[in-house]
Write a protein that binds this DNA or RNA. Structure first.
Lengths: 222, 222
DNA sequence: GCATTAATTTGCGTATGCATTAAATAATCC
DNA sequence: GGATTATTTAATGCATACGCAAATTAATGC
């Protein structure tokens, strides 16, 4: 028994999020408030509240009389998001390295890297994506800036839906984990400049790959 | 005739924002939804919507049964915000320089610098602050990343109320405009690396001054 | 036919009321 | 008297209702 009883607006928030990520609410699609209320079996009030929040998180847009639009992502949007992630995560990496954490505090980071290796060996892309998320999340956590944490989380959410698509049309990300290891090493050794530069390079490379991929496949929106 | 007729929830949003910035709603104070509704002469519904939005913008916090709390800022919060601004604005400066804008596109930037000079000559700190805002806003606009724009706006909002206080207890910011000019020159010359580094230095210096100031005056929250 | 206007529908913004539940107060027990 | 439990109070979360304006459809004129 999970004795929860969470509020309707909170449930609306997480159900809408999950339906956006899964694609059940497709990018570019419009939905009336009443339609979403029916879908979630609640009144419009908590739906509106959740939608308001999701709007300010950049996942959707309210257009009176046209419905709630799930925001699609153009290649330019992707570039913007990756640039934000590059800047903020690199800073986090630098600060994490400067902290000179004992190795035990970096266990989660190391674990994520190992899990990615394993996922690649198993060619389990979902597991890889999950561990990659974990690595980046842990990195910004170690960076110690709560605002960076939440901004990065927001940006990651925005690309999450798209990644489901892109992940499966690109080569297995083997290079990526070498980068991760390099960042990890630098943090472990307290080498802030290297941590920063390695991570920046990692993200810029990932961005280039992605943009090229989208371009090659003529994907204008996702 | 300003033929407007803006919605209640939109009015709630801007009135609450303005009352937070002015200090009419003081940092750390709690307010029931019904109290705010009375204050704005509307029902709780649009107030709740505005409050939801302001919460996700980091200006306040909803604590069920305790009321809406206007978030105070600690020196650590200030440091966090300045770090985010440093990273994202520096990137914007770099990108702006790389664009090789014709000088005419940089007129607003130059104007802001001139206005700051004038404000300093007149010892008009409010005018200085306004022009400084304008400079930073214009900079990120030129950077061409809409997400950076809105994140920077959010962070600037968080710091706005506090600046009213800090601005008047610190020496007149003469050094600051030298920095601005340096950034401007670099953008004009298309020197991306210098634009980036100068702006980073500018923000880091500003952060150091501020933190020192808060520390000196033992200001724990504002 | 086509354009213009009138009628109708429909979705949204907001007010209102109520059930729920946390907090505050009173009451009871040891 | 202090602690525990019962009672009351009150703020919130949510459903509901309704007026208004936008959008759609029907009607009318030319």
């Amino acid at each position: 028994m999970s004795g929860k009883a969470l509020s309707s607006s909170h449930r609306a928030l997480q159900e809408l999020r999950s339906k956006i990520f899964s694609g059940e609410l497709a990018a570019g699609s419009d939905h009336l408030e009443s339609e979403l209320a029916d879908l979630l079996e609640m009144s419009r009030t908590p739906v509106r509240e959740a939608v308001l929040t999701l709007e300010s998180q950049g996942l959707l847009e309210m257009r009176p009389r046209k419905g709630v639009r799930i925001l699609p992502l153009s290649p330019d949007d992707m570039a913007e998001i990756y640039d934000v992630l590059t800047e903020l995560e690199s800073h986090a990496a630098e600060r994490a390295a400067a902290e000179n954490f004992p190795e035990s505090d970096l266990a989660a980071l190391a674990q994520a890297i190992d899990d990615m290796d394993k996922a690649i060996a198993d060619t389990d892309l979902d597991a890889w994506a999950e561990a990659d998320d974990r690595f980046h999340g842990e990195l910004v956590r170690l960076g110690g800036n709560s605002r960076i944490q939440s901004i990065v989380a927001m940006m990651s959410d925005q690309v999450r839906r798209a990644r489901t698509t892109t992940l499966f049309m690109r080569p297995v990300p083997t290079q990526s984990n070498e980068d991760h290891r390099k960042v990890y090493q630098a943090i472990r050794e307290g080498d802030a400049a290297t941590a920063r530069d390695s991570h920046r390079q990692h993200r810029q490379y990932a961005k280039a790959i992605l943009i090229e991929l989208l371009d090659k496949h003529r994907m204008r929106f996702l």
